[in-house]
Design a protein around this nucleic acid. Sequence first.
DNA 1: TTGATAGGCAAGTCGATACTTGCCTATGGT
DNA 2: ACCATAGGCAAGTATCGACTTGCCTATCAA
Lengths: 97, 97
Amino acid sequence: MAEDVFKALADPTRRRILDELVERDGQTLFEICTRLVAKHGLGLSRQAISQHLAVLESAGLVLSRRQGRYKFHDLNTEPLELIVTRWLKPDAPESTP
Amino acid sequence: MAEDVFKALADPTRRRILDELVERDGQTLFEICTRLVAKHGLGLSRQAISQHLAVLESAGLVLSRRQGRYKFHDLNTEPLELIVTRWLKPDAPESTP
DNA sequence: TTGATAGGCAAGTCGATACTTGCCTATGGT
DNA sequence: ACCATAGGCAAGTATCGACTTGCCTATCAA
């Protein structure tokens, strides 16, 4: 579970997808494709993005809801909170009031 | 720079190494090898661990200081702070006092 | 100086994974 | 009914990354 989060974050394209979703939630596959090309000039096939979304989804970082012929993707930052606290000592600077 | 952090965290063995260093800072290569075998039964060669440490070091997650024939490795959690805030919206729950 | 310890360099293997291509299903509009 | 849009499935390629093996350097102790 948490292991998948690290692998999901390892790819730069997947991180870009998360960047897109944090900007505008609930995008479809085609929207994401279009915006990745427009913003970063990423010439990736639709399938490539689809597979990346599947990885992000199985890692719990993206939730999807199907509606008619559209499939909307939402960002879920919950898994992110766990992964860093793993190596932060209890006396971390942010928790010293 | 920050990109390397994600790749460094992608490998389970490297995460184990960080686990070791958060428990006891300033270990040498051989110490880490020994403890990985003892705790997790990881039958990895010394070179494998050495290469992992190089990756962690170039990601800034591990700092090393040479002293005689020993090379001590210290954990540096600073790069970790950046990577999660990247996708946390400004109105995150932890920053709402 | 010899030997043992701690570590580094370089090439090679092998499996994982990112990406493509081609075809198929389903929904919606006209 | 038709066609266009939105997406899925599966196999193939090709690059990247983890790990090994063998040899080499440097520090310390006897």
